[in-house]
């Protein structure tokens, strides 16, 4: 009797609409979630540039360096950036000239905020940006307990 009364009360709460009673707020969810969760990794995460590159000690052609990068999170939730690595490779006289910058430790990026990441790495004194080079981006982040590992490259 208690069970029937409860169900009857709930049914009346829904103004005797069976669909409302059985589905509740499920029909509204896709719109709510899509509003909150519009992610375009291609667009939002790839538009970045290394800046404020400060060269420190040099050992022959390789110099340790720091750099900054501005990253805007496309997620409306906190994300944990576990790995972020930018490698630039230039092929010159059959040799690879490599520069590499990486995130030293994981960083939490707040929802929809632009964060400046401080990267460590090294530059190569032979490397000149005027020539064509390949950029590899390796990124690993966690959002809602899901780990995304992205590897992209472009010229």
């Amino acid at each position: 009797m208690i069970l029937l009364s409860g169900i009857y009360y709930g049914f009346n709460e829904c103004k005797k609409d069976v669909t409302c009673f059985i589905t509740g707020n499920i029909p509204e969810l896709p719109e709510k979630i899509s509003k909150k969760f519009t992610v375009n990794v291609q667009k939002d995460f790839k538009e970045f540039k290394l800046r404020n590159i400060s060269v420190k000690e040099c050992n022959d052609l390789l110099c340790s360096a720091n750099a900054e990068i501005e990253l805007e999170s496309p997620f409306p939730y906190k994300i944990k950036l576990k790995k972020f690595e930018v490698i630039t490779i230039k092929y010159q006289n059959g040799r690879e000239i490599i520069q590499r910058f990486y995130l030293e430790k994981p960083v939490t990026i707040e929802a929809n905020k632009t964060t400046t990441l401080e990267l460590k790495g090294y530059v190569n004194r032979e490397f000149t940006e005027s020539q064509n080079y390949k950029t590899e981006l390796k990124m690993e982040f966690e959002v809602f307990g899901v780990d995304f590992e992205i590897v992209t490259e472009g010229w």
Partner: peptide, 10 residues
């Protein structure tokens, strides 16, 4: 979901 909510409430 009202059906589930009110069942568990009961």
């Amino acid at each position: 979901i009202p059906l589930i909510y009110w069942t568990t409430y009961s």
